[in-house]
Design a protein around this nucleic acid. Structure first.
Length: 433
RNA sequence: GGAGAGGUGGCUGAGUGGCCUAAAGCGCAGGUUUGCUAAACCUGUGAUGGAGUAAUCCAUCCGAGGGUUCGAAUCCCUCCCUCUCCGCCA
């Protein structure tokens, strides 16, 4: 959520930054300002009346104490009228405020000044590359062919269970998925200093609103109910990412300054309706309704937000370095960024069978956009409460990492070599038919 | 699912219509004392919104929302949540 004071004091700056996203949100600023102005005016009036009422009520109390009943009764009549006016004005404020807040909660974050202007992914500048595309003496297969020949994934039977967009890992495929989860968690918790947590996979709507997935993108997530109790719809949702529960862990808390930075890593499955995406990459496991991911979350002081973002990208790309995969890092332009983010780096891994790069990680600094929505603050030593920056990054998404590994390490005989970093977890150096 | 208890500041916890400007304790910060550490003592210590250049002032907040009243933490109604025991269950 944007700071209403910032909008009030710097409306043109806010409009210009919103406009850079290209979604037309800047047109709502005028209405927010009007509602804000109206609210403050009404509030000033009603508060003055309340002060008056409090004063008279006190006097009545004193008179009653002295048994001056007649005088007290006279004052009661005088005050009754004030009460009616207060009720009316309170009602006005109660109507204005939700209107203002409904707009505020639907406005996306402002892109940071270091984010390049642009409209689509085409405009995202390349930040750096690592390694090189592997050479093959044969035509590399796709992960779908490899999964079928090595019996790592049973696509047909997964469809039988849950419809399209779901994956049934089998035998070495299941083991590889589990080995990757273990490898990622141990890397981030043991080497990178993140505290491992294991959150609920089902959360209430306030958590989705806290990180910015609600109310604007409500149709993209799975709601769950107990049995067929339709009246419970809207109370619980399957998490679309571990960010949803983990970033909300300290919601509505005032953290001591010395507890920052807080760093969490978590493995969870992620559930996404991917509404409107049917037909896009539905074959295979590039885009599915359920996938595994290890997520990184940081809660830091605002002055450290951008240093910590750079470090988080380093932590995520370490995964690809250890696995010996070729990747590139791009900086998302203003038009391509997510709703809550102020600055985002994407890490894309090379998948030879696809002949393209796959996004396996997205690292964002959301600044105080989410902490405002959650009302999460920290107390500085002077006593002032501030909103921390909240960062999230994939470290990394599993399904696409799985794809890149198979396609990169496939051999002419159809087997797949396991890179040394992963061997202790999978307990083999090669998967073959 | 059944029965019961309860939700008050960072925490524990008192408060049953006006002296609540929410007691007390713990914690925290500063100070005094002090070979060091510790202790003791003193002082201070909630949040949000609004007005003001500022010092400061005002309003609201005792789970949430309504109601009664000149006045509500306190009385009434609705809802939410937590805990304990029982039942079922991995």
């Amino acid at each position: 959520m944007l700071d209403i004071k910032l909008i009030r004091e710097n409306p043109d700056f806010v409009r210009q930054r919103l406009a850079s996203r290209g979604a037309g949100d800047e047109k709502f600023i005028e209405e927010v300002l009007q509602l804000d102005e109206q609210r403050r005016k009404t509030l000033a009036e009603v508060e003055q009346l309340k002060a008056q009422r409090n004063k008279v009520s006190k006097e009545i109390g004193a008179l009653m104490g002295q048994k001056k009943i007649a005088e007290a009764e006279a004052k009661k009549i005088e005050t009754r009228d004030i009460g009616d006016r207060i009720t009316a004005l309170d009602k006005q404020v109660a109507e204005i405020e939700p209107k203002r807040d409904a707009i505020l909660i639907s406005l996306p974050n402002l892109p940071h000044e270091s984010v390049p202007m642009g409209k689509t992914a085409e405009d995202n500048p390349l930040i750096r590359m690592h390694g090189a595309k592997p050479d093959f003496s044969f035509k590399p297969k796709t992960h779908i062919e490899l999964c079928e020949s090595l019996k790592l994934v049973d696509f047909a039977r997964a469809t039988k269970l849950s419809g399209s967009g779901f994956v049934l890992y089998t035998n070495w495929g299941a083991k590889l998925e589990r080995a990757l989860i273990q490898f990622l968690l141990e890397l981030h918790s043991n080497e990178h200093g993140y505290t491992e947590v294991n959150p609920p996979f089902v959360v209430g709507p306030h958590c989705l609103e806290g990180v910015g997935q609600f109310p604007k993108f409500k149709d993209q997530y799975y709601g769950v109910v107990e049995g067929d109790k339709q009246e419970e719809m809207g109370k619980l949702y399957l998490i679309p990412t571990a960010e949803t529960p983990v970033a909300n862990i300290h919601r509505e808390e005032i953290l001591p300054e010395k507890s920052l930075p807080i760093k969490y890593c978590a493995y969870t499955p992620c559930f996404r309706g991917e509404a409107g995406a049917a037909g896009v990459g539905t074959r295979g496991m590039i885009r599915v309704h359920q996938f595994d991911k290890v997520e990184l979350i940081k809660i830091v002081k605002p002055e450290h937000g951008y240093d910590e973002l750079e470090k988080m990208v380093t932590n995520a790309e370490k995964v690809l370095q250890l696995l010996g995969l070729h990747y590139r890092i791009v900086l998302l332009c203003t038009g391509d960024m997510g709703f809550a983010s102020a600055k985002t780096y994407d890490i894309e891994v090379w998948a030879p069978g696809q002949g393209g790069y796959l996004e396996v990680s997205s690292c964002s600094n959301c600044e105080d956009f989410q902490s405002r929505r959650m009302n999460m603050r920290f107390k500085v030593d002077g006593g002032e409460n501030k909103f921390p920056h909240i960062l999230n990054g994939s470290g990394t998404a599993l399904a696409r990492l799985f794809v890149a590994l198979l396609e990169t390490y496939q051999q002419a005989d159809g087997s797949v070599i396991i890179p040394p970093a992963l061997q202790p977890y999978l307990k083999t150096d090669r998967i073959h038919a």
